[in-house]
């Protein structure tokens, strides 16, 4: 019974990942590609994904852009406000490592310098297809998290 319930929960989690998009100092290139995912041509609502715009509701945190000294705290704030289980997807060269800007003085670096990142989506900007792939990879991560929780 418990096992079945767990399976149901796992499958719904895979079918309804709500995303929170945070532009953490990106050049807007990746941002608009994230937004493009919502639009008719890519329509990630097919997978039940909606951009909820609020950390309290979100399962997946999509971060685009470099982390700088000022938005570092914002990023951790948002991450803290998300209820578990949660995964983080870093998008674009900037989100992964700071990209072309990583040597600039106000750049801390990639998202994983501040919060743990589960999926890296490369690209400059990352294409919507790549973002969808990244989201699919993130869904697998939910299953991993569930297994870990069961093991504990």
């Amino acid at each position: 019974m418990k096992k079945m319930l767990g399976k149901i929960i796992a499958s719904t989690r895979m079918k309804s990942p709500w995303i929170l998009h945070f532009d953490c100092g990106s050049c807007n290139g990746c941002d608009i590609e994230v937004l493009a995912c919502l639009t008719p041509v890519y329509d990630i609502e097919r997978f039940g994904m909606v951009n909820v715009g609020n950390p309290m509701h979100a399962d997946i945190l999509l971060v685009t852009g470099t982390v700088n000294h000022r938005n570092k705290k914002v990023l951790t704030n948002l991450y803290d406000q998300m209820p578990a289980p949660k995964v983080v997807i870093a998008i674009g060269a900037c989100g992964l490592s700071g990209g072309i800007f990583r040597d600039a003085y106000n750049v801390v670096g990639g998202v994983d310098r501040v919060i743990p990142v589960d999926v890296y989506v490369p690209g400059c900007p990352a294409k919507p297809e790549a973002i969808i792939d990244g989201a699919v990879l993130a869904l697998k991560k939910f299953e991993v998290l569930r297994q870990q929780k069961l093991a504990v």
Binding site: N68, H69, R70, Y105, N106, V108, G109, D112, R113, V114, I115, P116, V117, D118, V119, Y120
Partner: peptide
């Protein structure tokens, strides 16, 4: 905690507080 006067080349720009340790990647 950020750098001040970063675009000055001739005067040394200082960092007010040290960088926090980066979090280990859990991915």
């Amino acid at each position: 905690n950020a750098q001040t006067a970063p675009l000055c080349r001739y005067t040394v720009s200082q960092i007010k507080s040290p960088e926090p340790e980066s979090i280990q990647n859990s991915g």
